[in-house]
Amino acid sequence: MSENVGEHVPFECPSCSPDLETVHEVLTTGGGNATVKCTDCGHVHKEAIESESSVSVDVVVSQDGESFTGTAEFDPEETIYEGDEFVVETDELIAQVRVTSIEAGPEDRTTRAEATEVDTLWTREVGNVSVGVTVNPKEGSDEGSRSLEVHVPGDYEFEVGETEEFGEEAFTVTGIHVRENAIDSYKFPKLGDEGDVVFAKDVKRVYGDDESSGAWSAW
């Protein structure tokens, strides 16, 4: 079991009850021991305590507009940060997720918290993701830009200047907008220099020039 300061827990008291447990107040903890005081006679002594091996935290997973709930186990001394990634299991799926928000109380959202202080982790599935793409028409076309959605692994790389093909769709990447919670990993929130690369899980939107050979479909 694990004790916290101020809790009342059962221990044998070497002064007044060496064979039967009595109620003790936890005064201090540390180093695998607790200093406790017998509430019957006031005797203060140390007792060995066991630390919790893990704590269970509620997790909400967002995937393609749907939400699923599950739990994840963390070390009690671990600090969880916005942007952290881990695997979570729900009734619907097992997913690689990224923390997008940490709820440490009903009205308390933060970017970091000790695992023991977390009420709920809000996350987004990043193992497999949907990426929105705006495709600009070919030169001389009287069509307007169109939007499409592609489904790729989270670690798929979009590179400015490279041509992507998805079925009948093909486009050359001209720009990439990075998600807000991933901006620190890139030089700018909007990338447009040839050779700039962004992982699909970090993409807010891709922009490209049409390279498709067939007629456009309506979106």
Rank of each mutant, 00 (worst) to 15 (best):
A115M: 06
N136T: 10
A104V: 11
F11S: 03
E77D: 12
P106V: 04
E77L: 11
G105P: 00
V152R: 14
E89N: 09
Y156N: 11
C13E: 03
A95E: 15
W122H: 13
T172G: 03
E143R: 10
A48K: 07
E165C: 01
V135Y: 04
G167K: 07
C16S: 01
N128P: 01
T111Q: 12
G31Q: 00
D210F: 03
D108Y: 06
T100A: 14
S147N: 12
D19Y: 00
G167V: 09
E85Q: 12
V5E: 04
A104C: 09
I176S: 03
E139L: 08
N128F: 13
A48L: 07
E125T: 02
K190L: 14
D155N: 11
E82D: 10
V118E: 08
F166L: 09
C41P: 01
D142N: 11
T28D: 12
G175I: 04
R98L: 10
S67K: 08
A182S: 12
E211P: 04
V88A: 14
V23F: 02
K187F: 09
S2N: 15
E103I: 10
T120C: 08
S17N: 05
K46S: 05
H45N: 02
C38S: 04
S130H: 06
T116R: 13
V36P: 09
D184S: 13
